[in-house]
Design a protein around this nucleic acid. Structure first.
Lengths: 244, 244
DNA sequence: CCAAAAGTGTTTCCCATACACCCATGT
DNA sequence: ACATGGGTGTATGGGAAACACTTTTGG
């Protein structure tokens, strides 16, 4: 068998010349799973569609890839459009490509996920009125295959939390140990023993304890912590094993 | 700000009507990183391009997505075209989308990786003369961003080997413990203590020891093993922690 | 008899887990 | 005084890591 007779590879041979070029071109979308945290629960940012198809239903935010950008840039642009923010941590997740996933037309979507602190970006940041934070556990059903995207994102976030530190993007600059534990419990969807959690976090050595207390949560007040950026990023690179 | 004024989302509103549809459509390719194992070293299957651009250089096998299939199907078709085989384990890896990644035209490529046993598919399977197995460590420089794809695939395979059993697809049906250890050492790129490895594998309980020996490797001969499909697949689902 | 690969157990150490009481403060 | 959430340490068990000698047999 000669390679030039093969359809899948043959196309490339005729590059720039034949009908395949036009015929098989498709639209590329990117959809963003935006996770947030408010100190208590893991949240997800959704948008109510005010256009067809599926008008009135909830969906991830998304947009199409333009000729002049790569996917990372497209995802960042879409995120900026909605939240007004640059420099958000984003990671490519998965490509969804089923033929009829979008009933309107053949579209392939690359999902990205982002992590942000809800409080810092609630009113100033979110510029689209139809966008709303939902508790992850109480989120409505989404259009197309967006629920599947979210499911994959949750799994990825969970795995990430078990191998790299999480929180820099999801927590305010100063936070209590309890908030950090709430974050981990939300992501892993399980209760963690308080002492074991603190021991583990301390052994990671990525936090600086401040001489400041958060007095809103209790009468005694709870010490606030900060991530030590250098130590944190070192752990992001080398990773660890968070068995908890 | 109204969402309908937003570029990234606005496009969707005009669905089926405006120039964006044609303008921003692009070609979707899929490239396959095909890992093989011969009992000694981890291999990768490459193809020498006999067409432009980059004629004569080595590349991953790939092809374009058609209108009538999703990406998994496209990757399986491309693989079948080259190796003649169905039912190969494949996994989606990553999307590469830089604007100029393919100098010929704007193309976005979704990489997949596959695992196969080199011996079983060497002569019967590989039907393209210009395809060749390379030792992963001695592979030539590849075209475009294919080296980056391979790098990501190796990392993924490594992570997989640490959390799920590996070998069903990469080893012949019957294999020696030494071969399995060679496989792990190739993937993890480190020496493993023989006794610790055997203890670990035995504790996983996914192998059946046969009453057969491979007499080619030594005078004494080494016992052959088989994967117990059910136990193996159970471990694939539940995962484990292979610290080695 | 010797070279070459196969096969086999034990000890040590670290880390994950389980677990309960006192502290500080505002009301 | 008491209710509420904050903060702290230890004992146990299991799994990873380090480690060396005997067995088999073809040449």
């Amino acid at each position: 068998m000669n390679i030039t007779k093969n359809k899948s590879i043959g196309k490339e041979i005729d590059l720039g010349l034949n009908y395949y070029q036009k015929e098989d071109q498709v639209l590329i979308a990117t959809d963003c799973i935006i996770f947030g945290f408010n100190g208590q629960n893991l949240k997800i940012l959704l948008i109510k569609r005010n256009f067809e198809p599926e008008i009135g239903k909830w969906s991830l935010i998304g947009g199409f890839l333009s000729k002049d950008e790569n996917l990372d840039e497209a995802a960042a642009r879409v995120l900026k459009t909605l939240t007004g923010l640059n420099d958000i941590y984003m990671e490519q997740l998965y490509v969804h490509s089923n033929i009829d996933r979008d009933p309107g037309q053949r579209t392939i979507s690359v999902s990205y996920y982002a992590l942000i602190d809800v409080e810092s970006h609630n009113y100033e940041g979110i510029q689209v009125e139809s966008a709303k934070w939902f508790d992850l556990k109480k989120a409505p059903k989404l259009i197309f295959d967006h629920d599947e995207m979210v499911k994959k994102a949750v799994l990825r976030l969970r795995r990430r939390a078990l191998t790299k530190p999480i929180g820099f993007d999801l927590l305010p600059e100063k936070f209590s140990m309890k908030q950090l534990q709430n974050l981990y419990e939300s992501i892993l969807d399980k209760k963690i023993d308080k002492r074991n959690f603190i021991n583990k976090i301390n052994s990671l050595d990525v936090l600086n304890k401040l001489n400041e207390k958060d007095m809103t949560s209790s009468k005694k007040g709870s010490y606030l912590f900060q991530f030590d950026r250098k130590k944190y990023e070192k752990k992001v690179i080398e990773g660890f094993n968070f068995k908890i």
